[in-house]
Structures are given as structure tokens and as C-alpha cells.
């Protein structure tokens, strides 16, 4: 099993490295957005998939990262500083947004994060002096690293890929550390986790803060890619799209967001032939997937693998309120 896994990883990496050679500029741009949204989805996967805290504000954190990077790089500061500033800001704001989660859960929490998303949108739209209002910010430069420029679409793709790989490695490290176990324990049973010494308050806040920082990172990559940002890029619809990526990919799985972002970003491209029907087909496919495989694409792969190798799953009859 481990051998197959490693082979698949290497193959995946090769595909990621070679992919732009099969694509023209636009295709490379789509690949870039895939990796960038995968980072945002990774963050939400930590908050929602691992720690079980719903958030409808991931795009707002992308916005915070994107505006921070835009403003700083347009002022002549190097991208690399702007990314730390953006992520730091998101971390702090995420921490604050985590506080309501200490009191409320589920749909109540969803509404609170929704309110935050609206607030963030209003700030981006109304504070013209800082954000350029509805017109947004134009002419965001792409970073140079010594002699290496990221002006071409392909070089920007490789730049994004490197950042993505760092982000992914960091994410993997976090979820495999004791923190990852504590996040899962928070999701599964906060009261027991707390009685076993897990500081559930701190872990909840961290789940929001780290997830938000990933959102910020993704925004910091998005701004130089499109070179133009406005508030409409960071609305609730985009947050829901990121949520869809997490759920469709497989919430709580390491590779879930990567697959989910791929599907959500790429599928519309493949459905172009259907023209005006593409959204309907797209929505239909998502519904079918969710009904037949609520654990997402990763769950689908797991199920297929389980057909070859017996695997035990959690039973449903011992939970509270079970009806078997």
C-alpha cells in the first residue's frame, strides 16, 4: 500500500510540473487558480474538516491577503514581506473570529461567520481611500526573485507551485502532529477532549487562525496572478465555492481540498461545450456525487480501495440518538 501511495505521489508531482506544457496561457492560468484555491480550501479543511468548526468566511481571508499584498507590493515592498503581513493579519483576525465558536456551534456559528464575511465585504467596498472601493486596485506587480521574473504565465505557475508545495508540506506537518490529533478530537467530542487535557478553547481559536492564514496566503498569490482585485472576488459566493471544494473533495482528508478545488475549477472548463447548460450539468454532477458519496472524492477512492481490501468503518448504532 505504502509503495502505491508513494508512486501516486510522485506521479502527481510529475503531472503538476509538466501540466503547463500541455496548456496555452489561459490553461496555465486555470491551473494557477486551481493551486491557489486549493490552498484556501486547505485552510478551510483544517477549520471545518479537521476541527469541525464551520466557517463561511474563507474568501474574506483571501481578500485580506490579496489586499494586503496588493497595497504593499504597489508601494514597492517585496511580495515575500507582504505575504507574511497578510498571513499574520489573517491569523489575528481568524483568532478573533474564533471567539464566537467558543460559545456557539453549527448553524449559529455559520451565521456569525456569514456576518463577518459581509462586514469584510463592506470594508473592501466602502473604504475607498484604502481599497479603491468598487473599482478595486489595478496594476498589482508580479514579484521578482533575483534574476527570476514571474511575468510569464508559466513562470508564475511554477512560482505558485513552489508556494503550494510549501503550504501543503506545512499542512501535512500540522495535521500529523499532536495538534492534528487535538483538532480531530475537538471535532469528534469536545467535552471528552477537554477532560483529557486538550485545551479546547485554544485549539478552537487556532483552528480558525491557521485556516484563515491559509486563506490569506491564497489571496497573496491571487492578487499578482490577476493583477487586479475588487471586492466582488471575495464575496460569500466565493466562500461557498471554497466550502464546496472542501466537501466535494473530502472534508477531513489531506488530499481532499486539492481534488475538490480541481473539480470545482476545472469541471466548468471541460463543460464549455455544453454552453449555457454547463451550470446545470455542473450542479447535477455535484448533487449526484454528494448523494452517493457524502465523504467526497477521497471517500469515493476509499470505497473503491475497500472493495479490494476489507476495511472497518465507524458504526452508526452507538451514537447518541442513533436509530438502528
Amino acid at each position: 500500500m505504502a509503495l502505491w501511495r508513494n508512486l501516486a505521489l510522485v506521479a502527481g508531482l510529475v503531472v503538476l510540473v509538466l501540466a503547463p506544457f500541455t496548456q496555452a496561457t489561459y490553461g496555465t492560468y486555470v491551473l494557477c487558480s486551481w493551486l491557489i484555491f486549493a490552498i484556501a480550501a486547505m485552510g478551510l479543511n483544517l477549520t471545518l474538516g479537521y476541527a469541525g468548526q464551520i466557517s463561511l468566511a474563507q474568501a474574506s481571508f483571501m481578500g485580506i491577503g490579496a489586499y494586503t499584498t496588493a497595497l504593499m507590493t504597489m508601494a514597492g515592498i517585496h511580495w515575500i514581506f507582504s505575504v507574511f503581513a497578510g498571513m499574520g493579519l489573517c491569523f489575528v483576525v481568524g483568532l478573533v473570529l474564533g471567539y464566537p465558536a467558543l460559545r456557539v456551534q453549527h448553524h449559529f456559528l455559520a451565521f456569525i461567520t456569514l456576518a463577518f464575511a459581509t462586514l469584510a465585504f463592506l470594508v473592501m467596498r466602502n473604504e475607498d481611500w484604502l481599497t479603491g472601493g468598487v473599482y478595486g486596485l489595478v496594476g498589482i506587480p508580479r514579484p521578482d526573485f533575483g534574476p527570476i521574473s514571474t511575468m510569464s504565465q508559466r513562470s508564475y505557475y511554477y512560482f505558485t507551485l513552489v508556494v503550494f508545495l510549501f503550504a501543503f508540506a506545512g499542512f501535512r506537518w500540522i495535521v500529523r502532529s499532536p495538534w492534528g490529533r487535538a483538532f480531530k478530537a475537538l471535532r469528534e467530542n469536545p467535552i471528552r477532549a477537554n477532560s483529557l487535557g486538550v485545551d479546547t478553547r485554544l485549539i478552537t481559536l487556532l483552528a480558525f487562525a491557521i485556516g484563515a492564514a491559509y486563506g490569506g496566503l491564497s489571496g497573496s498569490l491571487m492578487a499578482p496572478l490577476v493583477q487586479y482585485i475588487d471586492p466582488m472576488s471575495f464575496t460569500l459566493i466565493i466562500s461557498l465555492k471554497i466550502l464546496l471544494m472542501v466537501v466535494v473533495g473530502g472534508s477531513g482528508y489531506l488530499f481532499g481540498p486539492l481534488l475538490g478545488a480541481g473539480l470545482v475549477i476545472m469541471l466548468p472548463e471541460f463543460l464549455r461545450f455544453a454552453e449555457s447548460y454547463y451550470l446545470m450539468i455542473y450542479a447535477g454532477l455535484v448533487v449526484i456525487l454528494m448523494v452517493y458519496c457524502p465523504t467526497g472524492l477521497i471517500g469515493l477512492i476509499d470505497k473503491t480501495a475497500a472493495a479490494f481490501k476489507a476495511k472497518r468503518v465507524a458504526r452508526g448504532d452507538l451514537g447518541q440518538g442513533a436509530q438502528l
Partner: peptide, 15 residues
């Protein structure tokens, strides 16, 4: 009060 989606080993280690 166990953590159903974690392995037995992970349950114990978490504790």
C-alpha cells in the same frame, strides 16, 4: 465517549 473516527491507538495517544 471515545473519538469514533480515530484509531484505538490515536484515542489512547490523545489521552
Amino acid at each position: 465517549q471515545v473519538f469514533p473516527q480515530m484509531t484505538v491507538l490515536d484515542n489512547i495517544i490523545l489521552a
